[in-house]
């Protein structure tokens, strides 16, 4: 599928998996958050990769994690956005540090995975707040996201 097949007025950006990342997205589709862990040194690795950068051991193991963590940074998206987001602003995107130590991005969502139209003030979003993973459906694509706990 090329960019040309998407209508930019309504389309959201779509993750395009490759052989190194497909297990992550397959896990997300099942409602499981999988993070790679090196079988040699035990390091948790993000983003997905074929070789552990600590000791150069190939083939880290996809390992299910709880999806619990804390806010490491956060932003509030405002216009100009991609057109599909025009009726969603303002919304918050979190950089979450999982309890395993790696950091990944996700929307701020409610307990059911729905995006919140907020600047984060009412929810008290701040670095250090505890979060838990939820799954947000974005135009048919499931995306790991986080709710404050």
């Amino acid at each position: 599928m090329s960019d040309a097949n998407l209508d930019p007025k309504t389309a959201f950006p779509v993750p395009v998996a490759d052989a190194d990342t497909q297990p992550f997205w397959d896990g997300v589709a099942r409602g499981e958050l999988l993070i790679q862990r090196c079988g040699s040194c035990g390091a948790w690795l993000w983003q997905p990769r074929p070789i552990c950068p600590r000791g150069q051991t190939p083939g880290p193991t996809w390992t299910r994690v709880s999806g619990d963590g804390r806010v490491a940074s956060w932003v509030v998206m405002r216009p100009p956005t991609l057109p599909a987001y025009a009726d969603k602003v303002p919304f918050v995107v979190l950089l979450v540090e999982l309890d395993e130590g790696v950091r990944l991005l996700g929307y701020l969502v409610d307990g059911d995975g729905a995006m919140l139209e907020t600047d984060g003030a009412a929810e008290g979003v701040a670095i250090g707040r505890r979060v838990a993973v939820r799954y947000h459906d974005q135009g048919g694509t499931r995306l790991p996201s986080f709710t404050l706990v």
Binding site: D3, L6, P13, V14, Q47, M77, Y85, V93, L105, Y107
Partner: peptide, 28 residues
């Protein structure tokens, strides 16, 4: 719109504009 490589974990959350990445750094 087709997010490959590192973008597949960023762009689907609208971390797409140059300002978006810088804003996360700035908050820190």
């Amino acid at each position: 719109y087709m997010a490959t490589g590192q973008d597949q974990f960023e762009r689907p959350y609208h971390v797409a504009r140059p300002v978006d990445g810088m804003a996360f750094h700035t908050r820190v």
